[in-house]
Design a protein around this nucleic acid. Structure first.
Lengths: 202, 202
DNA sequence: TTGACAACATACCAACTGGTCGGTTTTTTA
DNA sequence: TAAAAAACCGACCAGTTGGTATGTTGTCAA
């Protein structure tokens, strides 16, 4: 007989439901009642695992969002010596995600959304999100250095400012995509991103 | 004797207070009570001028935010034939604004904030904000065309995708600045923006 | 088998939300 | 100058918010 209580799964269910609702709506705009309803649990369970709504948000950042960044950016770039082509490949995959999961077209990037919403309201949120951004930027920065050494990136590129600009361009683009909500804009801004990345090639 | 009731001023006061609170906080996170308190008026006055909170938001977009975009981007670029240098000059002015009005460092761009927050929640908001973005992009696009004709921009630059990427990069940058909240990051990402713009030069 | 504790459930709370409505005061119009 | 209309006030409303207190149920070690 399978156990009726699976605490790890319950916790995960809460985190994933919260992530999804924060993504589709917003942190402030999502109520605890919505989360417990959609997760099929009760407030008692939620407050058993998380001290409050903010703590739940922090956990979503540190567990869910960190995993996503790791998976999509940090791991693929970890051993890259040709970051420009590798990033273009990642963007191709992302672009495909926009087709497969259309709600991303409307809802944007969960990391960006949460950062835009909470950075000016709660410093703990801001710092936790900033940490993710730093990890992301550093992964790109490191790969650019490797790319320069391997002769795949122009030697006059400054890895620091380039990686910051790349992250800013990507987050800005996904934000604009959310406002446009159509694939024509996606390909238009995609061309712009591609041109920028190619301009870093020797 | 000066009139005790100045309806135009009252309406403006409401709009400006709402803009400021939406900017510092968010649309959803700002209550009507906050707005009327800070504006020194009452709910009766607010609902006399605006049917509801959403209508007030729409008016903020169409009146306040449009004016800001016009003032900072559209007018300066209207007659430009050297858009790269002219945009760099605008960015210099923006950078100075970050020093003079430090709350922009924390609160970001009101247009970007509202767009990120409301695009997936309310289609009327999205379309009104999108209109502003289109005007902004078109102003840049037009100036790039003029720049190409005048020999100040590379002829292989696609004005459409380039203008989209520029707006995305700028909005992304101001969003990242909001997460970082320090001037070092501003100059770092500023270098990245500068490099991108200069890469469009012949 | 039995405590002890973790894992839930549920009823409840004060504070706040956007919005309404009847009334008063000022301004404009006829 | 009278009446109509615009400008504004503030008490009130039903619904929702994040959070709590108290209880019940399942699990597992001793």
């Amino acid at each position: 007989m399978s156990p009726v209580r699976t605490p790890e799964e319950t916790r995960m269910k809460i985190l994933e439901t919260a992530l999804d609702l924060f993504h589709r709506g917003s942190f402030t705009g999502t109520s605890i009642n919505q989360i417990v309803d959609k997760a099929g649990i009760t407030k008692g369970a939620l407050f058993h695992y998380f001290k409050g709504k903010n703590e739940l948000g922090y956990a979503v950042v540190e567990e869910c969002l960190r995993r996503q960044i790791q998976e999509h950016w940090i791991t693929p770039l970890a051993t890259s010596v040709d970051p420009i082509n590798d990033m273009l490949a990642i963007l191709d995959k992302m672009s495909q995600m926009l087709v497969d999961e259309p709600h991303i077209l409307e809802c944007g990037c969960p990391l960006n959304n949460l950062s835009q919403e909470m950075s000016s309201l709660d410093d703990t949120f801001r710092l936790k999100l900033l940490e993710l951004y730093r990890e992301w930027e550093l992964a790109i920065e490191k790969s650019i250095r490797a790319g320069i050494d391997a002769g795949n990136v122009r030697s006059d590129v400054d890895p620091e400012s380039a990686s910051s600009a790349i992250v800013a361009l990507l987050e800005g683009s996904i934000g604009m995509i959310k406002a446009h909500q159509n694939m024509e804009y996606v390909s238009r801004v995609g061309q712009g991103i591609t041109r920028f990345l190619l301009s870093l090639k020797p």
